[in-house]
Amino acid sequence: MIVAPMSKKFILRYCGKGAKPATAVARVKASEDVKLLDDSSPRMLLVEGPKQAVEALAGTMSDWVVSAERTMKVPNPRPQVRSKRAA
């Protein structure tokens, strides 16, 4: 059985000068392993694919950094019940 590598969402951010180059966007669109989800931001792309494929793709484009998409929260200062007792 062949197990496909797990797909996750990643942020590709352009660190060079000005807006992201169209050539890089075209390269992402042409990729078979990486799916472009959002290109509406001037300096970022949201993509989905296996980590290795995304990193390999980003490695072919200069001045781009990759970060996994993750969530941040509003800090909650309230005390939390950690272990609810069972009946």
Binding site: K9, R13, E69, M72, K73
Partner: peptide, 25 residues
Amino acid sequence: NYSILKALDRAVEDGCDLVNMSLGG
């Protein structure tokens, strides 16, 4: 973090002098 960065880029584009981010991870 993608939504947050998009918002930050947009705030800068909109001319915000200060951006408040009461969030984190």
